[in-house]
Design a protein around this nucleic acid. Structure first.
Lengths: 136, 136
DNA sequence: CGTCATGTTTACCTTAACGTAAAGCAACGC
DNA sequence: GCGTTGCTTTACGTTAAGGTAAACATGACG
């Protein structure tokens, strides 16, 4: 059982990587980009509950196709002034709507391309059949 | 009427750009990558019927999400040994099938992401409604 | 001859999200 | 004291498909 770590647990970089299936480079990169803020005991990193929560949001955001910079801004908004919940939530929903629209446009284009490609393939396939059955 | 140029017409780079909605940089780039082979009278370029046909295929390939390198290989195949039609067509269809499979996977992922995002948005929207109607 | 409009070459710049390599520290066991 | 792990920093590399800038050429026109 890969039990969820206790809330107050501090994870090393490796534990973090194993838990969320990312590389150390990725975690350091996210820290450099100010998406994560692990404790630094000396030079070593320890990832807190907060980092874990943020990482989950980051990964979800990436699945939605948000850039790391977009994600950073949202996270920053949420923990800079915790008391503007409404405005922040509204802003988040707005961004999500834009993104959703983008994704739907993209899907439409993909569908078109798929349809066109299929058509081309039928074309080619029948030409191929003709070539294989000469003088049909 | 932007009439299709005669088969033996030679187009300047600008005419070519206007006809296919690409930039000069793009055409020079494609030439450098050996996708196009305009005549070179001195230093000037003149695009032939063959270049126009190739460019159409290039643009179509791009719509399908093929890389320029993939496209180059297909074009090269077709005009290196014009007599292996069957094998070439078969190869092309094979590549197209791979690409189609990729696109369909991608579409599935996109659909998933869209669904998940919508779900999140409902979530957020109801939270937002609650925030706006305090102590509901 | 001057000067526009087009063309040309060369070559560095852009972007995102990490990968990868080099070199060094820190704690542990022995 | 030393070797082995595991971690760290620093910093350059990767990728595609062009964009952009500088400096130069060429031909037509007046």
């Amino acid at each position: 059982m890969t039990a969820t770590p206790a809330k107050d647990a501090l994870l090393t970089i490796r534990e973090m990587c194993d838990a969320y299936d990312v590389t150390p480079r990725t975690l350091r990169f996210y820290e450099a980009k100010e998406l994560l803020f692990p404790l630094r005991r000396g030079t070593a990193r320890f990832f807190t509950y907060r980092d874990r929560a943020r990482l989950k949001l980051i990964l979800r955001g990436k699945r939605f196709g948000f850039s790391l910079e977009d994600i950073r801004q949202l996270l920053e908004m949420y923990d800079r002034d915790p008391g503007q919940q409404e405005a922040q939530l509204a802003r988040t929903i707005e961004l999500a709507q834009d993104r959703l629209a983008q994704m739907e446009r993209q899907r439409a284009e993909l569908d078109e391309a798929i349809a066109e490609l299929k058509e081309q393939m039928d074309w080619g396939a029948s030409a191929l059949a003709t070539l294989r059955r000469p003088a049909g």
